[in-house]
Amino acid sequence: MAFEVEELIALVDRALRETSGVDQLSAPVTAQSKMGEPEEWDSLSFISVFTAVAERYEADLADDDAYHFTSIPAMHAFLNEIL
């Protein structure tokens, strides 16, 4: 199934806003975003992004899969591969 990047962006945006407790992030999440850009995407919020995606797609993710969750392009490619 083709997986839309816009949906992933919205998911990450929501997870980051919830974790950091802000209404608006320091920079928008885009198709090129990665950890540190926006700055709210840090090591503390990493687990929230990982969990949000795993729950949304009911994916059984292994620890090693987490390496793909440090940027939108990497996540998108990975999710398209496994879903």
Binding site: S43, D63, A66
Partner: peptide, 13 residues
């Protein structure tokens, strides 16, 4: 590096 981001999984595994 991944253990530094998901230390609870590293501890359990």
């Amino acid at each position: 590096d991944m253990a530094m981001m998901m230390p609870h999984r590293y501890v359990a595994a």
